[in-house]
Amino acid sequence: MTDITVDGLVKTYGDVTALDDVSFEIPAGEFVIVLGVSGSGKSTLLRCLNGLTPPTDGEILVGDETATGPRRDMAMIFQQHNIIGQMSAYSNALTGTLGRTHFLGSLLQLQDREEKLMALEALETVGLLDEARQKARRMSGGQQQRVGIARALVQQPDVLLADEPVASLDPGSAQQVMGYLRTAAEERGLTTVTSLHQVNLARKFGQRFVGLRDGRKVFDGYRDELTMDTIDEIYGDIDTEGMLAETDIDGDDEETIDQPAAGGGPVA
């Protein structure tokens, strides 16, 4: 169980300020969704948390350590899946063990039996056990993203970061993937930070919300505090009524719409 503390985080790219004095604390095991329009700094925040991007100023504490670079106990799920298309779903899931396997062992897939079983279990968690031997690039976008989640789970992290994990998926797959994410986080007690731009999905799956606008934190609160007004503040002067319209429907149509994604061709 790992908590995260972000204190006065600033990130600038030349003249552009991507993050402007962002601070918050996340207790261990919380499922946090970062909301905001494109370009509001969500991705930068997640990349800073992961250590992929060094912050310009401020401090990030993960557990007791300052985040300086990618680390084994922190897994990341990417918007573009970033799984390896040439390899099977199983081999991709197994790359989650790289941090604790030596080079030759990982090259020849000599991981322990338990590690290999763990990879298959992770695939089972995301509902891809039957597709384990399938080449990742032949899979649909939703399946590829689930392989990405499996890889993150195999990594056995304490913290799970997800950057727009469902942005390139159709609504059915998006719900499904968010569902898997939430379940996995709950089962394993992971501290989770995920960015999303769909308010309805966020409302449905989120526990706590951090709203970003132009790199500033404009909202930080739990589900009951996420009202129309706060959403207006995060998203600016756009018609947000439509966004909230669906949010009261809770998990009823999930099973019926998740199927089309499973059999389709790869999504670019």
Binding site: P70, M74, A75, M76, F78, I83, G96, L98, L107
Partner: peptide, 25 residues
């Protein structure tokens, strides 16, 4: 760049990142 970063985030060593993140592509 994506798969390379992805391998880095798993805590892979540099040779592992090159092999799995780059050469596998």
């Amino acid at each position: 760049e994506g798969p390379i970063e992805a391998m880095e985030t798993t805590g892979a060593s540099r040779p592992q990142t090159v092999t799995f993140g780059m050469l596998s592509q």
